[in-house]
């Protein structure tokens, strides 16, 4: 009865249908990568989702860093900051948790 709705993901853990994304789904996706989401994560996730909404592309590493620097300031645009939040492969994991397709060029 109280079973969690199962989220549909591909073999790399990306959401199959990005329209099925919810904040709960984000927590679940993050948990799979052993990331616990807090406010700092959310401001990045929301930014990336807005970017996708505008341009229909998931930002890869260098674009993400530029975007975060412009919108949230240079301290947060540093890769060390993003790595602490989303692991060394932060561009991939941010898009994954945000329910977006894998950024072009990530493996």
């Amino acid at each position: 009865m109280n079973e969690k709705p199962v989220i549909q993901v591909d073999k790399e853990g990306f959401l199959r249908n990005f329209r099925s994304w919810t904040q709960t789904a984000a927590h679940e996706l993050a948990a799979q990568d052993e990331i616990t989401l807090n406010e700092q994560h959310w401001e990045i996730i929301n930014l990336v989702r807005e970017y996708y909404d505008d341009y229909q592309v998931s930002p890869p590493t260098r674009v993400l860093a530029k975007l975060v620097t412009e919108q949230l300031g240079p301290d947060k645009g540093r890769s060390i900051y993003l790595m602490q939040l989303f692991t060394a492969r932060y561009a991939k994991y941010v898009s994954k948790i945000a329910g977006l397709p894998k950024p072009t060029g990530c493996d």
């Binding site: 505008d54 341009y55 229909q56 592309v57 674009v63 975007l67």
Partner: peptide
Amino acid sequence: TRDYSVSYGALGDY
């Protein structure tokens, strides 16, 4: 089909 014309707007960021 998909409208990908909006993605051209991201080129500057790339």
